[in-house]
């Protein structure tokens, strides 16, 4: 399963929300990845997430593989909304 977002936050994804995303993704059984600019990193890696250097307008896709995949994506979605990071992109 996967879901794509367009970054709208003027700071991109900075350390605090990145911490929240990585901590959350690590709580689930699924393997979770993030993909942006044709690069894919594990969501266990905060350096990986920050390495994208995401800016407003950039797209990022979260990919979850495993039994609780939809729960992971939902949890990540909540962080996106709470931190006003970006919006779902069709």
């Amino acid at each position: 399963m996967q879901k794509t977002y367009k970054i709208t936050n003027e700071d991109g994804i900075h350390a605090r929300p990145a911490t929240a995303l990585v901590n959350t993704a690590s709580k689930f059984k699924s393997e979770v990845f993030a993909e942006a600019n044709n690069r894919k990193v594990t969501m266990k890696s905060i350096l990986g997430v920050l390495s994208f250097g995401l800016e407003p307008g950039d797209l990022v896709t979260f990919i979850a593989e495993g039994e609780d995949a939809s729960e992971v994506l939902e949890a990540l979605d909540e962080i996106f909304a709470k931190e006003s990071l970006g919006i779902a992109h069709a």
Binding site: A15, R16, N23, T42, S45, L47, G48
Partner: peptide
């Protein structure tokens, strides 16, 4: 204290 939460993640980071 959040900054140290991030440092802890780096200390556990598989990419590092």
């Amino acid at each position: 204290a959040e900054i140290f939460e991030a440092h802890l993640l780096v200390l556990h980071d598989p990419e590092l």
